[in-house]
Simulated scan of single mutants.
Amino acid sequence: MAKQKQAVFRFYAELNDFLPGPLRQRDQVYHFWGNPAVKDAIEALGVPHPEVDLILVNQRSVDFAYRLQDGDRVAVYPVFELLDIQTVTRLRPEPLRRVKFILDCNLGKLARKLRMLGFDCLYQNNYQDEEIVQIALKERRIILTRDVGLLKNRAVTHGYWVRSTRPPAQVKEVLQKFDLFRRIQPFSRCLECNGVIEPVDKGDVEDALPQRVRQTFNTFYRCKRCKKIYWQGSHHEPPV
């Protein structure tokens, strides 16, 4: 009779967010039959693969296809967006230096706030999971989600599970995770459709403005896509 095998796993840094409290920051034994891929073992333990960027087995860098052996010691590290680890085996394509996002149905408020800061964010409250994955792959977008299961789709290459449940904290979390503070360009994206906002002459939009706005403001912007008009403060007021 075949003997059940085991390997010892240790997850580092924020990967512990996916583990039950008693298993965080400590070794855990994984029992298995045959020789499963290390990727499958990692996800069976609760960690989605897009959050992983480095695996060391017995202190040697391996990729997701590595087949577990009895007695292996496996160290799993999170995505290093800010560090150079070129000398070891990266598990994803290179980081997306032109940062674009697609958000799931749970993150509408976050999408709006990131657009306000100038980030390209696709969001619809009726996106299906498979649609999100396909758009992300086609347009090289990073998936932001509150659904760990979405990130376990084997086709996903770039994704992040947003830990916080409060939109202001979510914004800070995403900015820190992807080192975006220097890329903020406030009020350059339409809050409604994600289109690019550009300056427009007052005379070109005057007929569409409320009387109060026409009398008070002289500087205006218009979304190139949906044609909504913005003026000073209108990202905090309903646009035309």
Rank of each mutant, 00 (worst) to 15 (best):
V162S: 02
V57E: 07
V196L: 12
P199L: 07
V171H: 02
I184S: 03
V47Y: 06
H49C: 10
P210W: 06
R225V: 09
E130F: 10
L23T: 07
L110S: 00
R97T: 15
P20Q: 06
K39A: 15
Y127K: 02
D120I: 06
V99C: 03
T87H: 15
P199V: 06
R214N: 03
F220T: 00
V38P: 03
A155Q: 12
A208I: 05
F220C: 03
L96I: 13
K39F: 06
F80Q: 10
P48F: 07
Y12C: 08
Q6Y: 12
A37P: 15
I229M: 00
A111H: 02
V99L: 09
R97S: 15
P78H: 06
L103Y: 04
I132Y: 01
A208K: 15
F178I: 08
D63P: 07
Q69Y: 08
E51W: 01
N16F: 08
K228W: 00
C193Y: 02
R182S: 13
F11A: 09
F187C: 05
Y66T: 00
L209E: 05
D27E: 13
E192S: 14
Q28R: 12
D179I: 06
A136Y: 03
Q232F: 14
V52S: 02
Q59C: 09
C226R: 04
N16R: 09
R67V: 09
G159I: 06
G149L: 08
P186I: 13
R214S: 12
Q185S: 11
Y221N: 03
R146V: 05
P50Y: 07
Q25P: 02
D17Q: 11
H236C: 05
A136M: 06
M1A: 14
K5C: 12
L54Q: 13
L137H: 03
K177M: 15
L151K: 04
F119C: 04
L91R: 06
C121N: 01
R24H: 10
N35R: 10
K3E: 12
Q232E: 15
F119I: 05
E94A: 14
L45Q: 14
M1H: 13
D129Q: 14
Y160A: 11
L180H: 02
C226Q: 08
C190R: 04
R112I: 04
V196P: 02
V213E: 07
Q211T: 15
V156K: 00
K224I: 14
D104N: 10
T157L: 04
H158D: 09
D201N: 12
K100N: 11
Q28P: 03
V38N: 04
R73A: 11
